[in-house]
Design a protein around this nucleic acid. Structure first.
Length: 164
DNA sequence: TTAGGTAGTCTCG
DNA sequence: CGAGACTACCTAA
């Protein structure tokens, strides 16, 4: 078990996402959301440990039930300057809208491949909506994969948001 | 369909 | 550091 084990999580909740990794583990630091991880359905659930973690839980649950809520959480992801530039820009992508890697790249004067690299390392999926970035011809990837369970999650999220 | 271009990051040495 | 490899890509031919 490398990195944090589940005891390091500030909360673990159930989600309606498809697949085995349908629980969400929340990691905060100094009242900022630092990571959101897809963890296995066998991971122990955990009550929010702080009032900030509780508001993360509430907003996620609202998102799953209504799909068009806007997250108002301060974020503190670890990453390079460039990665944070990509993630910050991505937060401006409205619900129900989809950008291509190329479109996002033009907005920040970069290149599509580099954008894909940064999205791949997004530590806060859903809240930083990397599922809204697709390729010009296909779906792109999600959570580092281009097929499999995480792509199903990406599709689920897009479908959820288009069904407003 | 593929070749070549792109920007950022990672891995060796 | 430096070269080379590796991407959740894109465009032109």
């Amino acid at each position: 078990m490398s990195g944090r084990d589940y005891q390091g999580y500030d909360a673990v909740i159930k989600s309606p996402l498809p697949g085995r990794d349908n629980r969400l583990a929340i990691v905060t630091q100094d009242d900022k959301l630092q990571k959101l991880l897809f963890v296995s359905h066998s991971t122990k659930l955990k009550q929010a440990k702080s009032s900030f973690a509780k508001s993360v839980v509430e907003q996620l649950e609202a998102y799953f039930s209504e799909s068009d809520i806007k997250f108002t959480l301060s974020l503190g992801p670890d990453g390079t300057e460039y990665q944070k530039r990509v993630w910050n820009r991505l937060r401006k992508c409205p619900i129900g809208k989809v950008w291509t890697y190329g479109e996002l790249a033009r907005q920040i004067h970069s290149a599509p491949r580099a954008v894909g690299n940064a999205c791949r390392r997004n530590p806060i999926p859903i809240v930083v909506p990397c599922h809204r970035v697709v390729s010009a011809n296909g779906m792109g990837g999600y959570a580092g994969q281009t097929s499999g369970m995480y792509m199903s999650i990406k599709q689920w999220l897009l479908q959820h948001e288009s069904a407003i």
